[in-house]
Amino acid sequence: MELMYWWILPVGILAGAAVAWWFLRRDKDCRHRAVAHTDRLTALPEYRDALRRHRRLLAVMAGSAAVLLLAALAAAARPVSATVTTPAEHSRDIMLCLDTSASMASADAAIVGVFQDLAREFDGERIGLMMFDSSAAQVFPLTDDYQLVAEQLARARNAFEGGPGDAAFFAGTGVAPGSSLIGDGLASCSQGFPGPDDGSRSRSLVLATDNFISGNPIFTLAEAAALARDKGIRIHALNPADFDYGDKPGQEGATLRAAAESTGGAYYPVDSPAAVGSIVREVQRTEAAARQGAPQRVVTDESAWPLGLALLAGLVLVGLAWRVDR
């Protein structure tokens, strides 16, 4: 709570005091009718009683006039409460890019499960799901149709968990020869983002893979990462099978880490599917923090109290003035 025009208070109080002083002074040396023997009236007990009541009334009136003045001044000084709020940014695009090789099934199920939860709170974010093995297939494109998202995520989860009756789910992921062509998959997923980055929406890609390649991809992982970087996409890589040993370069985990970090993203080795949840949430948090809008100072007028008080004092004043006049 602060006063926007705080200087009104001292100025107004001074002005009020000056007016009061002027009135009192004027009253003191104002012209009056000279009369004699006023004690004949003023010594009467009835007069004294009435005078006491009258004075009390006047004192209350003066008090409420002062309250009225102060409350009006306080209202004129615009009491405001300023809060700094950071508007939540919902202009995010998230692409889930899941390696469907057999070793990844439980991690994929965990990721999809987490996004099933997250998607319920989405409001403006767009989410898409692609999967790849030797070739990439789109389950659903970037969309904010959350009903569709929920349906598709449920279906995906069911499929990843090896549920019955949805063998067609993985159709299209094994068209090309080979398996786990990570670079091709990542490049395809990157194409899932429409056009070049115009800066209006953040782009993040959740890549789940163990980076074990068997076959000849068209794109190497580094090339695909460069492609993604060009489109303004940050890659967050989750590796449920990080078997790097020592710090020798060129190992699967290290390559994936390098690719992810080259786009400004991060690399997370995942020890168990249960840890996926917390990692994905952390990714979402860092993404959200990176896209936070500028803090805004929201100023709200809090004039209800002083105005209410002024109204009350005014009513009391009017009522008493009426009584005194009577």
Binding site: A34, V35, A36, T38, D39, T42, Y47, A50
Partner: peptide, 24 residues
């Protein structure tokens, strides 16, 4: 002339609304 009454000796003023009340 003003309308307020003031004693020539004591300078005390007579408060008219009080003086005009029926009991007084």
């Amino acid at each position: 002339r003003g309308t307020a009454l003031r004693d020539v000796v004591g300078r005390a003023a007579v408060v008219h609304p009080v003086a005009a009340s029926p009991k007084v």
